[in-house]
Amino acid sequence: MYQTKKTYITPTSKMLDLINDNHSLLLLLQHFNIDFAVSNATVKELCSKNNVSLNVFLLVGNLYNDFYPEKVESFKVEEVKSLLTFLKNSHAFYIEDKYPELNFYLQKIKDGLSPDDFKLIEKFFNDYYSEVLDHFKYEDEIVFPYFCSLINNSSIPTTAISVEEYRNHHTDIETKLTDLKNLFLKHISIKNELSAKRKFLNSLFELEFDLTIHSIIEEKILIPLVEKIESERNG
């Protein structure tokens, strides 16, 4: 949504040009622990300097630029580590940055709503947030360690993950986020506080954009990889 031009990222693309075309790529850099002072570096140079897998960076970067991977090739163990770093950092971003920001703007629009309406919306938001926290906790404590043990070829841990359960979590989180957006865009009008409402919505859009990519990575890349490794082991 932030992009103004659709550029397919290749190893020789200049990072600075890419950022100018789509500045939401700054978030991509942050999720990979890469500093924004990219100078004149190409994507390939930047990745090698920061120990990030080039293949993973291209795949995820192109998702930010709205190119959907047709086929995901298998990744090597070191590459999967980059992918997990990205996912873990995204979790930290949602928890430390995005949700507090949303909550801040939500409190700002309080005066434009009737106390009852506000109470309900606040409860909806808080319930939703604790659901999201549970989900991240589940991923950080069960899914990712399970995945690490699989790729490291160590003994299979006792807690196996249920792929189906995992997918349902995502659908639920996305549904409620869309509901929140639609409530404000279609149904709830607020007296004054337009500026705070816009910032709240902006923040929601940014979160939705990033969460969508997050889910695609987990569902289309991580889960198929897990299933592939599992079936290789059992077969």
Binding site: D117, L120, D172, K176, D179, N182, H187
Partner: peptide
């Protein structure tokens, strides 16, 4: 029609549209 899919979301819709009262 509403674009709202979750039950808590529908409740907020119903309250703010004064279809139900708390």
């Amino acid at each position: 029609k509403t674009g709202i899919r979750s039950l808590p979301g529908l409740t907020i819709f119903a309250v703010t549209k004064k279809i139900i009262t708390l």
